[in-house]
Amino acid sequence: MTAGPAPRGDRIRSGLRGPWPVFLGRQLGRFAASMVVLATAAFGMVHAIPGDPVRNALGLNAQPAVVAATRRTLGLDDPLWTQYARFLRGLVTWDMGDSLISHVPVAQVMTRLIPATVGLAAAAFVLAVVVAIPLGLLAGIATRDGRSRGTHVAFTSVTGVFSVVPDFVLGVGLVFVFSVTFKVLPVAGQSGPESYVLPVIALAAGPAALLARVVRVEAQRVLAEDYLRTARSKRLPARLVYLRHALPNLLTAALTISGLALSSLLAGTVLVESVFAWPGVGNQLVRSVLSKDFPVVEAMAVFFGGSVLLINLAVDVLIAVVDPRSVIKET
């Protein structure tokens, strides 16, 4: 492990002369294009709402005058392309109008809610990765070449169940055990660090189980490779065999799955925040969609979608750093 970070950095530097600018340019271009598509979809979503979105939101017995006034302030009577341009400009300048319900600026709502959600998702992601990669690697080592059938069955059963149990159900179970029965952790809300424990576990368990399974399978594959036999023939200590020779070769797969896990974890925040009454974007999203508060929903669609795109971009770039061959392949 000691020599790990140094060569990576080196690799990027030496690579900058090569295919890296093209690769990065293409990745960023793809990201920007996807963002535009995403913003357009969010905009289109509001305009695809059957009937009048304002009447929809304010209710059937809203005063026609109020509806008309709201339509005017939102600029819904302008030509479509003017509205579209205004929407895009609003996203860039972080000025997305006011909520229909609370009349608070959408930007202010988002600024208040995003840190809580990102904190939750980041903590859960770190926990999932920190647990899953060593666990999967150890399980892979223990079950290599068909060794230890018992460990294999136990590992696949436990991780299998955890990867299926949905996060909100696990959250309810955790609340029942730790908050209701043993009363050691808070039921809901964001307060001190202890309030993070249950929602983070509920969010992390599924992705961690999935990631651990993939890492184990990859570890088994890598451990059977010829170059691992070479490493063993050199009589290196186990630490070097596994960390220097095996681990880097399963990182690509682990990274890909981590990216997927992070995306699904972000979606999971919606449900988990709802179970734990967490003051985040997910919880608000549910309320805003139910009350048809479309300026807020639009912004949230861009936030969630943009996060997913950003994660995918980060994974692609990280994979290229770990395995420079993919850069050459792409360009």
Partner: peptide, 29 residues
Amino acid sequence: LATVFQDPMSALNPAVRVGLQLAEVSRVH
């Protein structure tokens, strides 16, 4: 004892620099 294996395409670790793969023998032993 040292062993040279059949398929040199797969016997060297693709993720580790060649120099390090040689040097680690002397480092360790």
